[in-house]
Simulated scan of single mutants.
Amino acid sequence: MKILIPFYSMYGHTYQMAEAVAQGAEEIDEAEVNLRRIPETISEDVLAESGALEAQEEFSNIPECTLNDLEEADAIIFGTPTRYGNMAGQMRQFLDTTGGLWQKGAFIGKVGSVFVSTATQHGGQESTILNFHTTLLHLGMVIVGLPYSFEGQMRLDEVTGGSPYGATTIAGGDGTREPSNNELEAARFQGKHVAEVTAQLVK
């Protein structure tokens, strides 16, 4: 059972969440879990000016995602930062190359799930996942979210990401906030939950 976690991360927040998702999925014995980077589309000069190039060095050793990776996976858990309430352009551009796989029905019946990062608490955490779900439905995927059995999404004692749609983190306006323990626990829960559901479907 192959669990693929393709993520785009500019400053590392989505990458940290992706690692937690992978940790959760790996708790299921039969799961083979792979992290993959979504290809960058911004020039190195622009990335360097914004400080992102240095941040991305932390996960530059992770292989870039390929169409073959998508086709071979039984479940795909996508991670993206939010851009104006939707997925990052890098993720959109990559998904726009999957027409051949869509045409032959390669995604039909696979499990699909999404986790995201935003700058602020109300910066599109839910809309980004819901908008992403539209693409997954067009591909024919079976959508799995973050059920309320993860009680951390009910917390009121701290500012935290997370909703029934998927795990989320808040990076802060200047990007200095790191994912909280609760947000990382949500990501681990989602990874394990997706792997459990997938195990039932591939039997």
Rank of each mutant, 00 (worst) to 15 (best):
A106K: 12
E126P: 00
M91P: 00
T80Y: 06
M141F: 10
K104S: 13
L146G: 00
T98A: 11
V116M: 02
G124D: 03
G100L: 03
G140Q: 10
E64R: 04
L130Y: 11
G100S: 09
A73R: 03
F132S: 15
G172Q: 05
G99W: 03
L70I: 11
G145F: 03
G100I: 09
D96N: 13
S113I: 02
G109H: 05
L101H: 03
Q125Y: 03
T160C: 13
T135F: 10
I77G: 05
E151N: 11
I76C: 07
A171L: 12
G172F: 12
I129N: 01
V114H: 03
G109P: 09
R177S: 14
P63N: 07
K104T: 14
I129L: 04
S163A: 12
H122W: 15
N68L: 15
T82K: 01
H138L: 12
G105E: 08
F115R: 15
V116H: 06
T134H: 15
G140P: 00
T80R: 00
Y84W: 13
P164Y: 00
I143E: 07
G172C: 05
Q153H: 10
T118D: 09
V159Q: 11
D157T: 06
G85H: 05
I170G: 01
G109A: 10
A119N: 15
M91H: 00
N86Q: 10
L67E: 10
I76S: 14
R155Y: 03
W102Q: 08
Q93R: 12
I62F: 03
D96W: 11
Q121V: 14
F150G: 08
I62P: 12
M154T: 00
G109F: 04
Y165K: 08
G161R: 05
A88G: 01
E126M: 05
